[in-house]
Design a binder for these strands. Structure first.
Lengths: 228, 228
DNA sequence: ACATAACTTCATGATTTTATAATATATAAT
DNA sequence: ATTATATATTATAAAATCATGAAGTTATGT
């Protein structure tokens, strides 16, 4: 996963700091979202689902430590990274924050260069992973998750019927390889099922209608192939 | 994985510090090994295969930054945690260390309490891996307490029959994953029990009646999945 | 032993998926 | 350009699948 695929949420009640940090991380390539308070942050986070949170401690309504605790309770954020960035001194606060589930506790003031290096160090393990989604296969604009039985085009989920999904699954096992209709029938329908050749065409048509027609190419007289 | 299963290697050329840190981490339950220099550390590490390294920077023969680089080159230590603990000031060193692959850079002097919290925070993800099955899981509106055998929807307790609870538990082990009826029967009923497929449908229906129908989705011809 | 709850199976109708046939369009060969 | 052939598209009938209600069966607690 690249930095461009990583979503960072910065929570601080001082607009200047928000802007400053956003700028620094956006320049690194991260996707950045901001919030000015813990409450606001939590409700945005439920939708935005950040990979990394950068939290101030002292904020109106809900402070950073509370937010951290609340995030860690939720299944969605079990694997998210949480870093505090604060001017608040005191070892007890730091211990509390770390014991609560924070991954780093960064003291202000800090040089941008150092800050960015720390953030990069935190996200390094996420970046090393191949895909966003465990078990998902990535074909450019198209992501296929076999376990979830789900296909995403440009991040948008597309509902496929079973045969459509299985046809797509077969074709994507070997991108570029041409599958004859007979081979498709054997592998998707099974050797004992008797189905007319043209049926494959209809399913290809339906697939194209849903995922777009650029992925599946027809080779006249031969069969179909998947490319991306 | 528990702390007792985690091997930590501390590398510092001052015996007092080695002893001090060893004591602190051993008391936490970690297995601790020490070395006084980068060279020595590397050769021991090849056999000992630590999960976490705590490195001083200034040492004779091979310094901490060199050692870090050398470790990261080796396949064995790709996933190991590396933390620097040093009195050396200077942002450039910190940036260099972090960019080289270090996971944390801790400044001396530091209180033992804070040091231990930071180390615990670093190893948390390793420790979490297998301890995850018990306790409560939070899926937004739905909270499932596996130990208490209790489900709450918007804070209100809901009484589930055993099969209903176990079905929900299975589905929530992997939110998003599609479970076929056969898989559900095998995992909830057991492989030797003979029950008709449709039975699963009836239990899903009862579950939906109690927790609402938005959590469990049907994939026609495939199975059911939990989403939140 | 009784009452109650939990579980399984079956039947029905609604809905979705699938296969096929019919027709239109595209492609390659002559 | 014409023809033959393969494929695309649309419509529709058939089949598969599921939600639901109800009835029968087994387990559990009092």
């Amino acid at each position: 996963m690249k930095k461009a695929d990583l979503k960072v949420m910065i929570v601080d009640d001082e607009p200047d700091i928000l802007e400053f940090l956003s700028f620094a991380l956006a320049r690194e390539g991260y996707q950045v979202e901001t919030a000015a308070d813990g409450m606001e942050a939590y409700s945005i986070a439920l939708k935005y689902q950040p990979h990394l949170f950068i939290l101030d401690i002292m904020m109106p309504q809900m402070d950073g430590v509370e937010l951290c605790a609340k995030l860690r309770e939720h299944e969605l954020f079990q694997d998210s990274l949480i870093a505090f960035l604060t001017a608040k001194s005191g070892d007890d606060t730091e211990v509390e924050a770390l014991d609560m589930g924070a991954d780093d506790y960064i003291h202000k003031p800090i040089k941008p260069k150092v800050f960015v290096s720390r953030i990069n160090a935190l996200t390094r393990r996420l970046r090393k992973k191949k895909t966003n989604d465990a078990g998902a296969k990535n074909f450019g604009r198209l992501i296929i998750n076999h376990e979830k039985f789900e296909v995403k085009l440009d991040g948008v989920a597309i509902a496929l019927a079973r045969k459509e999904f299985e046809l797509l699954r077969l074709l994507t096992t070997k991108p570029g390889k041409v599958f004859s209709r007979q081979e498709i029938l054997n592998k998707v329908w099974g050797v004992d099922v008797i189905v007319v050749d043209r049926t494959v065409d209809v399913h290809v048509r339906k697939l194209r209608g849903k995922i777009g027609s650029e992925f599946i190419k027809t080779l006249k007289g031969v069969g179909y192939k998947f490319t991306f």
